[in-house]
């Protein structure tokens, strides 16, 4: 065998197993889902080709858009809840002594828990009878505020955002800390010598210096929010009356609860398209400079 044939053979054998598994389980399903979207199918029996009917229904489906809106609410909660909290924590936690390391670790801790555990814990916190939230309101004399937090349609979605914010602050905080530690110390020294006040320094030096990082984090918030399924499935299942439905939970419910596999596939495809638009769009917008 010649050397180049040996190299070619090695490249092929080296890349092929990973590529095949990846193609079969990640890439091919995307096309299958677009294809199944053209059928009316209950999961068993014959599938009936119905053209674009499913896709047309998705576009007109108010619950689908309700789910999309809730996904966007989660994005908003991440951008305006997680990002500022993570930023404040990062600004205060740039040192690396034991105390600060312990605080960082505690903030990060929820990240390593299974979302099922997180969901169940928070369902219990909100529980109308045994929940500690209502117990707390009782013990400070605010009984009139007691609620069945997750079954009240007007607030249930907001109640779900709290554990989501709680859960995912850690990584953003670590990203910000790394960015802050990368600001050259000369810049801080110069600001100090010039007598720049702390608020002015924060807004005119520190934040502009890490602006790129902030952009990355915002994009992460968008892609991360599309992953919200586990918590919602465990805590409310999308109810009451679809008020906490997100795209992924609606896809799950349409497919595995009412057995509309074709419609579920059409929703899946729509999720892929919407998320690619959102992620690429946000990346495009973020690349433009507003400073």
């Amino acid at each position: 065998m010649t050397t180049s044939a040996r190299i070619k053979g090695f490249i092929l054998i080296g890349i092929l197993p990973a590529l095949l598994i990846y193609l079969f389980f990640v890439v091919v399903p995307i096309f299958w889902s677009a294809y199944y979207g053209f059928f009316d199918w209950k999961g068993i029996g014959a599938a009936k080709f119905i053209g674009f009917d499913n896709y047309a229904e998705v576009v007109r489906d108010p619950i689908f858009w309700k789910g999309f809106k809730n996904n966007m609410l989660i994005v908003a909660a991440s951008v305006f809840g997680q990002v500022p909290i993570a930023m404040i924590l990062a600004l205060l936690l740039t040192r690396s002594n034991l105390f600060q390391k312990m605080i960082r670790a505690s903030v990060f801790m929820p990240m390593v828990l299974s979302s099922v555990v997180v969901g169940i814990i928070w369902s219990y916190i909100y529980h109308p009878q045994i929940g500690i939230l209502n117990f707390l309101l009782d013990s400070v004399g605010l009984e009139h505020l007691k609620k069945a937090w997750l079954s009240e349609p007007s607030i249930s979605m907001y109640m779900i955002m709290i554990p989501i914010i709680w859960n995912y602050i850690g990584p953003y905080m670590i990203i910000f800390i790394a960015a802050l530690q990368n600001i050259p110390s000369e810049i801080n020294d110069a600001a100090q010598i010039d007598g720049v006040g702390s608020t002015r320094k924060l807004f005119q030096i520190t934040l502009p210096m890490i602006w790129d990082t902030i952009k990355v984090v915002v994009v992460l918030c968008i892609s991360g929010s599309l992953k919200a399924f586990d918590l919602i499935y465990v805590m409310t299942g999308g109810g009451p009356a679809h008020t906490t439905e997100v795209l992924a939970s609606y896809m799950y419910n349409s497919t595995f609860n009412v057995y509309r596999f074709g419609y579920g596939s059409a929703i899946s495809t729509s999720i892929i398209i919407l998320s690619l638009i959102l992620i690429l769009g946000s990346q495009y917008l973020m690349k433009r400079d507003y400073r």
Partner: peptide, 16 residues
């Protein structure tokens, strides 16, 4: 593959 939300492939994967 890193851009595709995992959940969106659940239905076709189930069928496959």
């Amino acid at each position: 593959g890193m851009l595709i939300p995992i959940h969106s492939t659940l239905v076709p994967l189930f069928i496959m």
